[in-house]
Every structure is written in C-alpha cells, then in structure tokens.
Write a protein that binds this DNA or RNA. Structure first.
Lengths: 216, 216
DNA sequence: TGTACATCAGTGAACGCGCGTTCACTGATGTAC
DNA sequence: TGTACATCAGTGAACGCGCGTTCACTGATGTAC
C-alpha cells in the first residue's frame, strides 16, 4: 500500500543514508541555526564529497522542506499517539511541552520566525490540520456544552479551518486559546527569554494550563 | 550630558549615513530574513562600495547588534510613552500589538527564533528590564490587592527580574501571563499561521486580553 | 555457477557567486595660524 | 582672507572562503541468462 519500497538492499541503503543526512542536518541547525544549513558541510561530516548528496536530495531546498515536513509529522504523530492513549487536553499539553523541550529546533522550524520568501507545500498544511483536529477533539470532550463566548461565535462563522469538525463555539475558542497560550510560554522558554529571570518555566506552563482549563 | 556629538557637520553626516545603513538593513531583513543581511548588498544599494561601510560599522556583527538594540529600544520607548500618557494594561496591549504589526521584523529580532551562538550585550537585557518594569507598573495599578495565586507566590520567591519593583504576587503573575499570552497571539499572527484560517486575529487578541483582565 | 550487462553510489575537477574583511590610496572637507 | 596641514569619507584591488550545483568519470553492486 504505502509506496515506501524498503524491499531491495539498495533502497534500504538509500533511505538509511537519507536519514543520516537529516540527522546531521538537525545537528547543524542546533549548532548554528537553520540558515547555516549547508549540504557541503553535511557531506564532509559524513565523510563523503559534496556532490554525493545530490543522489539523495535534489538540492538544499528539498532537504529543508523535508526537515520541515518531518518536524510537523513528528509533532502530529506525538499528539495523535497521546490522544489515542486517552490523553485529555491537559495530557496533550504536557506531551506538547515535552516534545518542544526535546526537539527545540523542530519546534522553531514549525512555529518560529518565518523565512520571508518560503511557502510550505500543501501536504504540510494538511499535517497542521491534523494537529488542530486532535486539539479540537480534546477540547470538545472537555465540558461538552460550555456557553459560547463572543470570540467563539466569531469562530463559528469562520470555521473552515476546523475541516468539518463538529465542535461547539466554546470548544473552538478553547482550542485556539490553548494553541496560542501554550505557544506563548514554550516559545519564550525555548528562546531563553526566561533564563535570567529565576522562576521555573514548568510552573508557569502549569499555571497557564490550569487557568485555561478553569476557563472563563 | 549625552555623548551624542551631533554638533559638527561631519558628525551629523556620520549619524545620518549610519541611519540610512540601518534602514536599508531593515528592508533587507524584511525581504530575505535576518540571516541574509549583507554589508556588501547594503553598500551597493546605497550606491557606494562595500568597504566604505567599515567607516560606520566595525563589521557585520556590530550592525546586527545595533539593529537588535534599536528594536528593543523602539519597543521600550513605545511602551513607556503610552504609559506616560496614562495607558492602563489594556492600553499597553494595544500599543504593543500596533507596534508589532508595524514592525514585524523588529518584533522577530526581539522575540523570534534565537541564533544559537549569539548572546546579547548587557545593555540590551537592561532595556528588556525597562519594558518589564512598565508592565509591572500597569499590572500593579490594576486591582492592587488581588489574591495571590500559587504561581504568584513562586514568583515572589524569584523576583530578581522585577528589579526591586514593589508589585504584589498577583501582579507579578499577571505581568508574566500578559507577556506570554500577547506574545502567543502576536507571534503566530505575524508568522502567518492564522492566515489560512479565516478568523480575525484582532478579535482573538481582544478575547485573550479580556480574559486576562477578567483574571482568574 | 559463471559470464555479460545494467544500474547506481560516490569522486574530483570545475564554474560562478557573493560574502566579510584588509589595505594602500585619492580627494574632498574641515581646522589653525 | 589666504595658505598649510590634518582629518576623514570613499575607492578599487585583492585575499581567502564556503557555498550550491554540473559534469564526466570510476568502481562496486545487483540482475539476467
């Protein structure tokens, strides 16, 4: 079914090398930032010559796009797995934070400063919708019939992004607030903006989550 | 008193050229991202030869640091001016959003994805504290004696960052929440993450602000 | 099992590019008497 | 007011660098009979 031909030895080797290239790419991003990503440097680090990588990636741009796709996929998988294991909204929050702390570079590739020119391919926005859907599920299960907020009503009028998910206005509102609030804390935490301040970011995260669950 | 010698014609010229270099730098960042900033490109755009800029900046790094400093300064000035005009916390929120929408590149240089190697000079963290202090003022004025939250108590134990500001625990908590929540919305808005979703980011921002002011 | 052929991974040379930065120099602008 | 000197903005050549990418080629690995 899936077109991942991992049958022949040669193709197994191919996917293995591709994976190693990506690993080195992540290391490089962690060390010097995404903009410093260089095919030649990766090749050298793997003990091969620059042009060799063109057997595996059409070019630098394709590699970067792949990394972004993988980052989205990784987050979606993580969240969906937690949901399948019965995690509620609070559970998703902790899984999200854990993922962000484990893979800060991936987090920033997904939610960080955008590159002015770049536009993500369609399938990536699709993965983004998957994440949103999982969030909506969790929000809908929590207090299924909360009173609609004004912004919830506005969202009800603009719910294309919910992809036909049958969530109530209050759930739509909560999903969006969840997203922005968790991102607010995680983004500043990963950026190091809290590091000189002395308090424990985990407690801030927990406080924000509690407040969100208590709901207005 | 201030050591800004804008007296002699030569020095007025100097500061003028420095200013133009920075302007072009911002344009370049807006077009291709901060990592694409190039002294040579700026020089060419100004109709002069590359090395000429070394009369005005010690090198690329100094220019970038200056831009970051200016961005912080611009935000601090904006917020302080609003505060001096009697703006309350809600007023500061709107001034902040306005500033972010007007200068997205500056916003990202301040709060965006960090460059792994880079550490900001001390005076920049000082400006950051000024912003925090203004925020604390506004939070302390709102409901001066709210009950302390658990996280507020934690902050009370780690209040070095407040630089001796006499805010109550509840105010400390509110200032931090204000910061992370506004950033959560603004960061995703400026990154374009809402653009395909259909709803109005201004309403989301307002809803988040209302919820914060209602306070739990 | 052995031979003939096709596939494909990886190499090394080469191209053009733009970068940051240095250096010795020219020429204009200001300063001192 | 005019001359002599110092200051400093800007130039052009040059250095070394690493980048992405192409190309013709070698040599190993798999496939077909």
């Amino acid at each position: 079914m899936a077109k991942t031909d991992t049958n022949t030895p040669r193709e197994r080797y191919r996917t293995q090398v591709r994976a190693e290239v990506k690993e080195r790419a992540w290391e490089q991003i962690a060390t010097a930032g995404a903009s410093a990503l260089s095919l030649n440097a990766i090749a050298k680090q793997m003990g091969m010559s620059g042009p060799a990588l063109y057997r595996y990636f059409a070019g630098r741009d394709e590699l970067i796009t792949e990394l972004i796709r993988d980052a989205y996929r990784s987050l979606a998988d993580t969240v969906q797995a937690a949901s399948a294991d019965g995690a509620d909204l609070a559970g998703l929050a902790h899984v999200l934070r854990r993922w962000a702390l484990e893979h800060p570079q991936r987090y920033f590739l997904v939610y960080g400063t955008p590159v002015p020119g770049y536009h993500a391919p369609e399938d990536i926005t699709g993965i983004s919708s998957e994440i949103m859907a999982t969030l909506l599920d969790a929000c809908a299960q929590l207090v299924p019939d909360s009173p609609a907020t004004p912004f919830g009503v506005h969202l009800e009028d603009h719910r294309e992004w919910a992809q036909g998910h049958p969530a109530q206005p209050a759930a739509l509102h909560r999903a969006v607030s969840f997203w922005t609030r968790m991102h607010g804390v995680l983004s500043l935490e990963l950026s190091g903006h809290f590091s000189g301040m002395g308090f424990d970011p985990a407690l801030l995260f927990a406080a924000e989550l509690d407040d969100l669950l208590a709901g207005s």
